[in-house]
Design a protein around this nucleic acid. Sequence first.
DNA 1: TATTGACTATCACGTTGCGTTATAGCTTAC
DNA 2: GTAAGCTATAACGCAACGTGATAGTCAATA
Lengths: 253, 253
Amino acid sequence: MYKVKEVSELAGVSVRTLHHYDSIGLLVPASTTPAGYRLYTEMDLERLQQILFFKEMEFSLQEIKNILSRSDFDRKATLKNHKELLLEKKKRLEELINTVDKTIDSIDGGSKMADKEMFKGFDMSEIEEHQKKYSKEAKEKYGKETVEKVEKRTSAYTSEDWGNIQAKTEEIYRRVMERMGHGPEDSHVQQAVADWRQFITDYYYECTIDIFRGLGDLYVADPRFTKNIDKHGEGLAAFLSKAMHYYCDQQTK
Amino acid sequence: MYKVKEVSELAGVSVRTLHHYDSIGLLVPASTTPAGYRLYTEMDLERLQQILFFKEMEFSLQEIKNILSRSDFDRKATLKNHKELLLEKKKRLEELINTVDKTIDSIDGGSKMADKEMFKGFDMSEIEEHQKKYSKEAKEKYGKETVEKVEKRTSAYTSEDWGNIQAKTEEIYRRVMERMGHGPEDSHVQQAVADWRQFITDYYYECTIDIFRGLGDLYVADPRFTKNIDKHGEGLAAFLSKAMHYYCDQQTK
DNA sequence: TATTGACTATCACGTTGCGTTATAGCTTAC
DNA sequence: GTAAGCTATAACGCAACGTGATAGTCAATA
């Protein structure tokens, strides 16, 4: 049984915060003394930990309350999702650090930075997307009475498909990244590329060699692609493009 | 000279935020049109970048205003300090990720976590300390009367490729959009599509019919494309895809 | 030329997540 | 029994915008 100050010091939050959480029903202590002192149990501490995790993800207190109130709230699955978000946050921070470095360089060398470059790492759209997706999943999973009404966008594919291509794309990028030191003709790289083409074929359309080659070109030709791909690693787009070309050459020779 | 929305999109902040920054004197645009429209220069963008950096460090807007108002504000030194803070933040995130991992393990294995363990990574005192120290240093440093000329940096470089494809893409989208009521086989639409293919061929690579058809498929198959294209108009991606298919059919019949 | 539609502007109140007094009761320690 | 240190509730304050409401601007069509 902990009193407010003890909890406050353990968790690094203010007493006022605990009061606040109590008053909005987010974290109501298990019991109180006759004098009205709040008494927190271990379970309360666990719940507080949950709350702080969600806060770190920038969920609002109301959202946190809703999520935690679900009877079938899956703590483990949630934590795993948390971790993903944290990793994304970390990635964003790394980008930001990169931007800082570049800015310093541009001051040193007098080189110029493109307007868009200046703001790299500030944009949180990716994280927000993930959060939206996550909150949707959470609603589907935790919310029996909450009826989904969203889906206003007329997309040719469902969010499930989107998740699939997203995951596969990420997987391919990772596999290729890991082997960037070995050249485009490396067997692991080539396997990844082959899988990539197979995935497109299975999932979308008959991806002929010609189309595939064109796609590879696009990766370096279209800055929108290049930018996106290079987020996963400097020079990945160019390398991937080369690997795809090599692959196509092998297939037609 | 950028208008509010342009700046907003470049930097990933809301228009309201820019209004706010103007109203509190944090980021006052260099000039306004006779109608009162805010016009931002490159220098304003640089200042905005600075502001966002400081915001990332969790300085208040008032503090940011004070720091930036110092005549001898040393941009480079500040950036270096930023970087340190970012690295600390990253460390904290890593700790948090660790805590998540441990929590997951403790659920799996049923082992218990010490109360203190549970909250590792949440405490920001270290960062706060650094900030206090930093702000003190800053005060000492910027408090001097020394006046230094603000570095004048030349205007930003915009990639020619990017500008070109961007412009052409926009043009094609616009031309197609205008004729969406007329069906994919409309002659203006078909002309736009033909120009599109020609542009790709001229500018990037020999865009064969097969590749072009594949590209058209991609517009509806890959949500990343669909989303992007549909920004220019609801259903544009699907329509454009159809038009491209029709075009390819005509070419091969 | 008139009319859209997409921008822009300025109020001005609403919201979140607490901080910050202010006032008062409880609980040990001497 | 009184001081020090904890606790309580209550109520206002505040930053940093969000969210309309209402109205002026501007370029491109009908």
